[in-house]
Simulated scan of single mutants.
Amino acid sequence: MRPVTKLTLVSRRYCHLCTEMAAALETLAADFGVAIEVVDVDADAALEALYDELVPVLLHDGHELCHYFLDASKVRDYLSEIR
């Protein structure tokens, strides 16, 4: 059995774009059977230094897939390639 692919959403609590990306990811995650880990950028100084003004940021193994808005087409293509 293949391990579940995990995408990381770098987010913050008071960010409406973060809330919107998290909601948009639900369908995509279900379609591809991936897990979404939400990480608070403000809880980690290193993440904040990297992504502070870019949140929300969607990552897979440290590779940035998109930021600000979900690029569903790009993420779908990426997930299809890594399967």
Rank of each mutant, 00 (worst) to 15 (best):
V39T: 00
T5P: 10
A23N: 08
D42L: 04
T5S: 12
L25Y: 05
V57S: 01
A45C: 02
A30H: 10
E26V: 08
H63I: 15
V4K: 15
R83F: 13
D31N: 11
A22W: 10
E81S: 13
T19P: 08
A43F: 05
V38C: 12
K74Y: 06
Y14I: 15
F32K: 02
D40C: 01
L79Q: 10
L70M: 02
H60T: 04
V41T: 03
D40F: 00
E37Q: 03
L58I: 03
Y51F: 04
V57H: 00
T5R: 11
K74A: 05
R12N: 14
D44V: 01
V41K: 01
G33V: 03
C15D: 14
Y78Q: 07
T19D: 12
A23Y: 14
V41C: 08
V38K: 04
L9T: 04
Y68A: 03
D44E: 00
D31E: 10
C66W: 11
S11E: 15
T19V: 12
T8P: 09
V39A: 00
V4P: 12
A49Q: 04
H67N: 05
K6V: 14
F32Q: 03
V4H: 13
Y78N: 08
M1V: 15
E37Y: 00
I82C: 13
D61W: 02
T19W: 11
Y14D: 15
L50H: 07
A22R: 09
R76S: 15
V10W: 06
D42H: 02
L47C: 01
E48V: 01
E26R: 11
L7V: 05
L65T: 03
H60E: 08
S80Q: 14
D77A: 14
T19Y: 11
P3D: 14
Y68N: 02
Y51Q: 04
A46H: 02
S11P: 14
L25M: 06
P56W: 01
V39R: 00
L28S: 06
A72E: 07
F32D: 04
L28Y: 10
R76T: 11
R76F: 06
E37V: 02
V75L: 09
S73T: 15
D61M: 06
I82G: 09
S80W: 14
S73R: 11
R83N: 13
D40E: 00
C18S: 09
K74I: 01
D42P: 01
L70Y: 02
V4Y: 09
L7P: 06
